[in-house]
């Protein structure tokens, strides 16, 4: 290098000097000799949180084995499986459980279909302003939050809401769009769409446009490109997104509570009732544990059959 050394008044940028200071400080607090334990130091808080979660689960497991005595409103001293028997033997819980699982499956399928189209448009669209518009449209409701959005639907889809008024203009009598199974599915799909798009975009970005062009030049029409190339290549993203949507839907509380009109409860609503309405923590705990178990088993089955998709994080495909 023919360059002369740094000039007298040369100074490193502020953030370099700050970092130097931090490093010196770190050397004092956590000497270099401890370097091989640094990894543990950084995951310690996360481990602590997971540990607390496990402790909580143990406590829930304990209370799920105790029966509430409605004469004293105290849990029983000894353990029994009464709460589980009650949960499994009561028709309403089976109805609610089946509704949760089937609604989660339906929501997952519908969300993935819509999210795939949306994510594909987002990835492939050439004009930057269209992409920005698509992103804003997607994330604006995302930032607004689930409950406020559900209230929004109550206003838009109500008997005197915008949709019914528009229908009224073409002579259609107001109809009940809310407070039924369809409304709950609609609300859930709308709620889950940004999550699914977010998880699908990386998977679709990883598919080079050239691969689609190549498939076309090799003789594949668009539907066949979609079926033989796009779908299999997007599989990891679809599985990841599907798992997230399914588990979030399965355990959702607010949408069935608000858009279901009280007759479309999911398991979470039943659990809430036990904890906060009838003060039966034992039964609530038993239901909660059964939900955790059912969710884990279903996710485990998907992992076994399809692999973990993008959630495998670099593990085997």
């Amino acid at each position: 290098m023919s360059e002369p050394g740094p000039k007298q008044d040369f100074r490193y940028p502020l953030h370099w000097r700050l970092m130097d200071g931090v490093e010196r400080l770190a050397d004092i607090v956590w000497p270099r000799s401890m370097a091989r334990h640094t990894g543990w130091l950084f995951i310690a808080p996360a481990l602590l949180l997971v540990g607390l979660l496990v402790l909580g689960l143990v406590q829930i497991a304990d209370s799920s084995l105790r029966v509430l005595d409605t004469a004293t409103f105290l849990p029983s001293e000894d353990w029994s499986l009464t709460n589980y028997e009650k949960a499994l033997g009561t028709k309403v819980y089976l109805t609610v459980a089946w509704r949760s699982v089937s609604a989660a499956a339906l929501t997952t399928v519908l969300t993935l279909i819509l999210a795939f189209a949306y994510a594909y448009a987002l990835v492939r669209v050439r004009k930057a302003w269209i992409r920005k518009a698509l992103l804003i449209t997607l994330f604006l409701p995302f930032f607004i939050g689930q409950v406020v959005r559900a209230y929004g639907w109550l206003i838009i889809l109500g008997n005197s809401g915008m949709v019914n008024e528009a229908l009224g203009l073409i002579g259609v009598a107001p109809m009940r769009l809310l407070f039924n199974y369809g409304a709950v599915i609609f609300g859930l799909v709308q709620y889950m769409l940004p999550f699914a798009v977010l998880l699908l975009v990386p998977a679709l970005t990883a598919i080079p446009e050239e691969t689609e062009t190549a498939a076309g030049s090799l003789g594949a029409s668009w539907p066949r490109i979609f079926w033989h190339v796009l779908l299999p290549m997007a599989k990891p993203g679809l599985i990841g997104a599907g798992l997230v949507v399914f588990t979030l839907t399965l355990t959702d509380f607010a949408v069935p509570a608000m858009l279901g009109g009280g007759s479309q409860d999911f398991i979470a609503n039943a659990i809430y009732d036990q904890f906060f309405r009838t003060a039966d923590q034992g039964l609530g705990a038993a239901l909660a544990l059964m939900l955790v178990a059912a969710g884990s088993i279903l996710v485990g089955l998907v992992f076994m059959v399809f692999g973990a998709g993008t959630l495998a994080m670099g593990g085997r495909k």
Binding site: P208, E210, T211, T213, A214, A215, G216, S217, L218, G219, A220, S221, H228, V229, P232, M233, K235
Partner: peptide
């Protein structure tokens, strides 16, 4: 339409189908 032309093309990044075997790639067209 592109998929009805009698033109074979080798792309800059090859654009092979990673989810298929070698034989499946060649059998695709």
């Amino acid at each position: 339409a592109p998929h009805r032309r009698s033109v074979g093309m080798v792309f800059q990044k090859l654009a092979l189908f990673p989810h298929m075997t070698v034989a499946q790639n060649v059998a695709f067209p």
